[in-house]
Amino acid sequence: MTNFKSFLFAPLVVLGLYLIFKKGFKNSILLLMTSALSTLLTIMILLYKTTEGIVVLSIFLRRLFFVPANLHYTYFNFFEGMEKYKLSHSILTFIYDNPYNMGPVDLVARDVFGLEGFSPNVGIFGDAYLNFGLMGIIIFVVLLGSILVLFDSVAMKSPLILSMTIIIIPSMSLVNSGMFTSLATHGILFAIFVTWLSSTLLHRNEKVVGK
């Protein structure tokens, strides 16, 4: 996941969550995140207007919001009316033949952008659509919801701040990667396992201390 620049800010995300919980603002976390993000973007736009420097604005505004949204639209537009992959490039390769003899990212890079060795990765919704169309979005969302319910169940016995800091970084991959890639390669399933292990150990230590 180190190819995503957002992971450079992972320590700041974890530290910010810790401070929010320590100060007792956990019930207002969404409001705080929205307010902080709006303030940050306003400051960056003002800096751009003043200095005409595009780098910071590009990283925090264009790359964070507009690039993922544009890539989802690109995939929807490209695969509309085309044969879907049906995960033939992934876990169902033994059932379905790949209709394009290449992965969807390489196909879009070649036919849309006209580039080789370019990886315009798309998030969970674009991945769902290119595999099964609109029905795929429903299926993948239900699957993701089931996984989140599983995570909630294993995180129930651990401190909320601990489970959040474990899952928040791997979950960011859902914006830039497919469902099953995020679960396996990018560590969401591993994060669930680590949360379960941490919860089990903490619960066991509490029993020992109680005795």
Score class of each variant (00 low, 15 high):
residue 5 K to R: 06
residue 7 F to A: 07
residue 8 L to I: 08
residue 10 A to L: 12
residue 17 L to K: 04
residue 17 L to S: 07
residue 18 Y to D: 08
residue 20 I to G: 08
residue 20 I to K: 04
residue 21 F to Y: 14
residue 21 F to M: 06
residue 23 K to T: 11
residue 28 S to N: 14
residue 30 L to G: 10
residue 30 L to N: 11
residue 30 L to E: 06
residue 31 L to Y: 10
residue 42 T to A: 13
residue 43 I to K: 08
residue 47 L to S: 08
residue 52 E to T: 08
residue 53 G to A: 04
residue 55 V to K: 10
residue 55 V to G: 03
residue 56 V to C: 04
residue 57 L to E: 05
residue 58 S to C: 11
residue 61 L to T: 06
residue 61 L to F: 09
residue 61 L to A: 03
residue 64 L to C: 05
residue 67 V to H: 08
residue 69 A to W: 13
residue 69 A to F: 15
residue 71 L to P: 01
residue 73 Y to C: 05
residue 83 E to A: 10
residue 90 S to I: 00
residue 91 I to A: 07
residue 91 I to M: 07
residue 93 T to I: 01
residue 101 N to G: 11
residue 102 M to H: 13
residue 102 M to R: 15
residue 107 L to N: 11
residue 109 A to I: 10
residue 116 E to P: 07
residue 124 I to M: 09
residue 125 F to N: 02
residue 127 D to F: 01
residue 130 L to N: 04
residue 130 L to Y: 08
residue 132 F to C: 01
residue 134 L to T: 00
residue 134 L to G: 00
residue 138 I to M: 12
residue 144 L to V: 10
residue 149 V to Y: 10
residue 151 F to Q: 11
residue 151 F to T: 06
residue 155 A to V: 06
residue 160 L to V: 09
residue 163 S to R: 14
residue 164 M to H: 04
residue 164 M to N: 11
residue 175 V to I: 13
residue 177 S to D: 00
residue 179 M to P: 02
residue 184 A to S: 10
residue 184 A to W: 13
residue 188 I to P: 02
residue 191 A to H: 02
residue 196 W to P: 00
residue 201 L to T: 03
residue 206 E to R: 03
residue 207 K to M: 10
residue 209 V to P: 02
